[in-house]
Design a binder for these strands. Structure first.
Lengths: 104, 104
DNA sequence: TCAAAGTACTTTGCAATACAAAGTTATTTT
DNA sequence: AAAATAACTTTGTATTGCAAAGTACTTTGA
């Protein structure tokens, strides 16, 4: 039986990781501090979420030194962009069902 | 600082529990077997998710006997309906940000 | 000049979660 | 009367999510 409720990519389905992906979609590249401020998450937590997205190859991180300080630049991969697209369209379907429910 | 990324109610932010809430919104009441089939989830998993929603007072479960068989009827509480409403409007904002991101 | 504070992270420890397998209790079929 | 079915719940375990602590520097102020 085909369920109305599609699987939701568990790599993306976490508030923090979803926010990271959306921010990267908007701004193409970002750094650690920027993400941290925008999402309001602790350092450690952000670090592990980034690692998870990297392991899934949804983002890539370039680490280099700029003015003698470490600087990480984070961006979406094509795979990540595609996964986010599918995730959001699945979620939209959930929301559509929810708003159908309200109407009756 | 006000983040664009609102907290997402962690009681609802799980594929299975979100689906349960939406199904209850649509059909007012439901039983265990119906939910299980619609969501495609194992018995044990569904049972624990239902308990979690009940503990949060988002759903109520009436257990009674009908034709000498146990029959659980599950429905949304007002609190649950309100929480789902807030959750979906927060999520819609995330999705709006995502589709803004795509356009640029 | 050297100690304290700041920056940009990562690692660690642990509590909470998600899941399926196994268990329970009662009924229906063979 | 044994086996299958229904409608769940409990248990065991692997995974997750999180913040506190740690690391490796650099900058600032006394």
């Amino acid at each position: 039986m085909e369920s109305n409720f599609a699987e939701l990519d568990s790599v993306i389905h976490s508030r923090v990781r979803l926010a990271i992906m959306i921010l990267l979609l908007q701004s193409e590249t970002a750094n650690f501090t920027y993400l941290k401020k925008e999402i309001d998450v602790s350092d450690g937590n952000l670090s592990t979420h980034l690692r998870k997205l990297e392991e899934a190859k949804y983002i890539k991180m370039q680490k280099r030194f700029e003015n003698r300080k470490p600087k990480t630049t984070i961006s979406l991969t094509d795979k990540g962009r595609a996964a986010l697209n599918e995730y959001t369209s699945n979620l939209e379907e959930y929301l559509r069902l929810a708003s159908d429910g309200k109407k009756q």
